[in-house]
Write a protein that binds this DNA or RNA. Sequence first.
DNA 1: GATGCGCTGTGATTATATTCACAGTAACTC
DNA 2: GAGTTACTGTGAATATAATCACAGCGCATC
Lengths: 219, 219
Amino acid sequence: MAREKSGKKISLQTVERMSLYRKVLEDLHRDGVANVYSHQLAELVRVSPAQLRRDLASFGSFGNISKGYPVYQLILTISRLFGTDTLQNVALIGAGNLGRALLFYRGFEERGFHIAVVFDIDAEKIGRVFAGRRCHHIQDLEAVLPDFGVAMAILACGAQNLQSLVDRLGRAGIRSILNFVPRQIHAVAGMNVENVDFSAKMEKLSFLNRYGTALEFEI
Amino acid sequence: MAREKSGKKISLQTVERMSLYRKVLEDLHRDGVANVYSHQLAELVRVSPAQLRRDLASFGSFGNISKGYPVYQLILTISRLFGTDTLQNVALIGAGNLGRALLFYRGFEERGFHIAVVFDIDAEKIGRVFAGRRCHHIQDLEAVLPDFGVAMAILACGAQNLQSLVDRLGRAGIRSILNFVPRQIHAVAGMNVENVDFSAKMEKLSFLNRYGTALEFEI
DNA sequence: GATGCGCTGTGATTATATTCACAGTAACTC
DNA sequence: GAGTTACTGTGAATATAATCACAGCGCATC
Ligand SMILES: NC(=O)c1ccc[n+]([C@@H]2O[C@H](COP(=O)([O-])OP(=O)(O)OC[C@H]3O[C@@H](n4cnc5c(N)ncnc54)[C@H](O)[C@@H]3O)[C@@H](O)[C@H]2O)c1
Ligand SMILES: NC(=O)c1ccc[n+]([C@@H]2O[C@H](COP(=O)([O-])OP(=O)(O)OC[C@H]3O[C@@H](n4cnc5c(N)ncnc54)[C@H](O)[C@@H]3O)[C@@H](O)[C@H]2O)c1
């Protein structure tokens, strides 16, 4: 997908694994580890050493040939790759059970994302404050959004008219959407969408329970 | 991974897409559509028609050559593949903000999963009832679990001693874990783990915002 | 019942991802 | 300062996934 100046490509699968690497690197850093070898890090994230080296090499060369990789340095580099070395504001649509759990979740901030504005459609919720953030009416979207400079939105609302909400978000300058609503939505040009579907993960697990990582599969 | 009697393999990526297919098939079914062509379904899930046909063919042949695929039939077949044609009980560990959102979420039941038991460690929560389910103390895990015949657990608890909790779940007969805790856990032999990490999805989106589905990428 | 159309299922092909395996080298030893 | 060790980065090889492209068929039409 993306390309480094030197011409190397970086695949989305690599980017996904990068999140894992960073997560365990944070743990190592907390434990005071300064350097780590590819085989150690690979072991921790359950990936082959060769793959880890290739992933890291795909955006430049960082390993010291006999000390391994510098933990803190690598954390910073990956954060820059993600653009999360500085906190960025995101919008939340829907302050229901899930939306409020997200508002009280501190894990986002730790990873560089700050839910800065909240919107809902339920009159009962407008004006209320959740974890320090006031809930606005969805009809004020265009009026309120520019105050916060957000490029990403999290959808945790109802399923009705979802696509038109997405289109509207696109027109209002949102470039990426994290979608928790179990409906297929279509990105407008230049917009990125990631769906989160717990049930799908459960289905995968259930499939694995039946047919195993191991083999023979009968209908 | 898995193999059909005829010897065909079915890959995990196919299984993941199968969840998508089923989701839009449900929509079609609700709208009264009886049959659908591969190119229509493919368009709805944003996948190539050839891939869709191959995915479906990978667990047997189901398309009528001139009517396309029978919508309802296909829903049933995919459900059987997942083992979600009958409701299965799952356990929830942790009745915090996220855990309670999951308890009140009806989407699981619609997809064949029923959160049947809840465990927490916080004395204040033990004995309380959330969405009809009583919360048990985690120390009673081994005593209570067998009553419910669960093979899958959802982790929405704190991060302390997580791995030993996982090991304990394994010994208590849990075969699959859906893990919301942002720590790397290691499956015991024969156990399957799926991690849900919202922040990782946000990181991916943020990366895409910076470097685009389009190309040139500079450090 | 012959003709044409447009579908599915799949062999063949191409593209992508992963692993192998090793050249090159920093650090450490004596 | 020569020898040894164990690492990284990466071409080459392999494995896996996606796409192409078409044979073969059911159905509609005449
Ligand atoms: N609760 C969960 O654990 C969970 C899990 C997975 C997916 N989801 C999905 O996430 C979404 C939210 O789930 P929930 O449990 O919080 O539901 P909820 O009913 O508790 O909350 C939905 C909130 O969205 C608001 N809303 C509805 N339409 C809106 C709109 N057009 N604009 C702005 N706000 C709007 C509602 O007023 C409500 O406050 C649902 O689509 C659900 O399917 C929830
Ligand atoms: N809230 C979110 O939106 C969100 C999002 C992503 C991930 N997570 C993760 O999910 C987990 C739960 O999040 P939360 O917001 O519900 O936190 P929370 O603090 O509200 O709830 C955690 C609950 O787990 C219980 N608990 C802790 N240790 C336990 C143990 N060993 N056994 C049983 N119960 C135990 C606590 O008593 C508490 O009730 C956390 O690890 C969090 O990082 C949460």
